[in-house]
């Protein structure tokens, strides 16, 4: 499969703390890649670096073969319009209503009429499973789960090629989380979407992600879930050896889901 994003020799250092040390990662077109790792292992920083929000200490990032850090601002902005991002805490514009949050990019980057923008906004709300009346609310009036959904709707509004999700299901009730996973799978199917998701949710890992990249020792170890489960590396074993992890893995192997990749 073709590589859409490549991270090479990435080093990130904050003060004396080295978060990434010569990290390599390949993201392939049309896959759903799960990024996992313990808290504070640098998942969000990795995502932010790929998105260009964090200037790495050293290293290169390629998108469809083009190096991003050396690119002109204009070109970069154009490229980024093909990316959808959902931040860990939503990052909704607090002074805009939900409707305006979602419509913002449409109004800004298309020639669609306001009525069309509004309809498309409602379609996105429907896609993420929110009622239409939510459109008139402000972010401060939403629950955590609703914020996640609105953030996803906003990330989807320009029909991105690559969707970045930072812990999309954390803070959701199990039913919503499962719906969310299903939603991602559906979108991925229909949109030729490449999805990169940071997640702690083992259900998501097992049911949605085709490949998993794990941050271990400041680098990436990647493979399918089955490959990672079979890995002898102590840290990886530890990550998947918790009781919850075990329960989920058992359940999924009974259903024959993840290991038959």
């Amino acid at each position: 499969m073709e590589t859409i994003i490549a991270v090479k020799h990435l080093v990130n250092q904050f003060g004396s703390q080295r978060v990434h040390d010569g990290l390599d990662l390949e993201i392939r077109r049309n896959e759903v890649l799960g990024i996992v790792g313990g808290s504070g292992s640098g998942k969000s920083v990795l995502l932010r670096t790929i998105l260009g929000l964090n200037t790495p200490t050293s290293g290169e990032i390629y998108f469809q073969g083009q190096e991003l850090t050396g690119m002109k601002r204009q070109e970069l902005a154009c490229l980024k319009r093909r990316w959808g991002v959902m931040f860990q805490r939503g990052a909704l514009f607090s002074s805009l209503s939900v409707a305006d949050n979602i419509q913002f990019a449409l109004r800004e980057f298309s020639h669609l009429t306001p009525a069309e923008c509004r309809e498309l906004m409602l379609v996105r709300l429907e896609m993420v499973g929110l009622e239409a009346h939510v459109a008139n609310k402000f972010p401060s009036e939403l629950s955590g789960g609703m914020i996640k959904r609105v953030a996803l709707a906003r990330a989807l509004v320009l029909d991105p090629q690559v969707l970045f999700l930072d812990e999309p299901t954390s803070g959701l009730d199990p039913v919503s989380a499962e719906e969310f996973d299903q939603l991602i799978t559906t979108l991925h199917h229909n949109l030729e979407l490449t999805v990169v998701m940071v997640t702690h949710d083992l259900d998501s890992l097992a049911s949605v992600c085709e490949r998993i990249a794990m941050l271990v020792d400041k680098r990436i170890v990647d493979g399918t879930l089955a490959e990672l489960l079979a890995s002898p590396h102590p840290q990886i074993r530890q990550y998947f050896s918790g009781r919850r992890a075990q329960a989920i893995m058992r359940e999924n192997t009974w259903n024959g889901m993840p290991t038959t990749s």
Partner: peptide
Amino acid sequence: EYLGYFEKARQRDQ
């Protein structure tokens, strides 16, 4: 799925 979303969004539009 798309058609489903579109139908529902249309019905809910107030």
